[in-house]
Simulated scan of single mutants.
Amino acid sequence: MTDFSSARSVSASGMQAQAQRLRHLSENISNADTPGYRRKLVSFETALGQGSRVSRVEVGRVSLDQSALSQVYDPAHPMADETGQYAGSNVDLLIELADAREAQRSYEANLKMFDQARKMSTSLMQLLRR
Results as ranks from 00 to 15, higher is better:
residue 1 M to L: 06
residue 2 T to Y: 01
residue 2 T to S: 11
residue 3 D to W: 03
residue 6 S to M: 00
residue 7 A to Q: 01
residue 7 A to I: 03
residue 8 R to N: 02
residue 9 S to H: 03
residue 10 V to Q: 01
residue 11 S to A: 12
residue 12 A to D: 04
residue 13 S to Y: 01
residue 16 Q to L: 12
residue 18 Q to L: 09
residue 19 A to C: 02
residue 19 A to Q: 06
residue 19 A to L: 04
residue 20 Q to A: 08
residue 22 L to I: 13
residue 23 R to E: 04
residue 26 S to Q: 08
residue 27 E to C: 06
residue 30 S to W: 07
residue 35 P to R: 03
residue 41 L to I: 13
residue 43 S to N: 12
residue 45 E to L: 14
residue 47 A to K: 05
residue 48 L to S: 07
residue 52 S to Y: 02
residue 52 S to I: 11
residue 54 V to L: 06
residue 56 R to M: 14
residue 57 V to W: 05
residue 58 E to H: 14
residue 62 V to C: 09
residue 63 S to W: 13
residue 64 L to G: 05
residue 70 S to A: 08
residue 71 Q to L: 12
residue 71 Q to H: 10
residue 74 D to C: 05
residue 74 D to M: 09
residue 85 Q to R: 12
residue 85 Q to P: 04
residue 85 Q to F: 15
residue 87 A to R: 01
residue 87 A to E: 01
residue 88 G to S: 04
residue 90 N to V: 11
residue 91 V to M: 09
residue 92 D to Q: 03
residue 93 L to V: 05
residue 93 L to H: 01
residue 95 I to W: 05
residue 95 I to G: 12
residue 97 L to Q: 09
residue 98 A to W: 10
residue 102 E to A: 14
residue 110 N to E: 05
residue 110 N to V: 14
residue 112 K to F: 08
residue 112 K to V: 12
residue 114 F to A: 06
residue 118 R to N: 14
residue 118 R to C: 15
residue 120 M to K: 00
residue 120 M to L: 08
residue 121 S to Y: 13
residue 121 S to L: 13
residue 123 S to C: 07
residue 124 L to K: 03
residue 126 Q to T: 10
residue 126 Q to M: 07
residue 127 L to V: 08
residue 128 L to T: 07
residue 130 R to T: 04
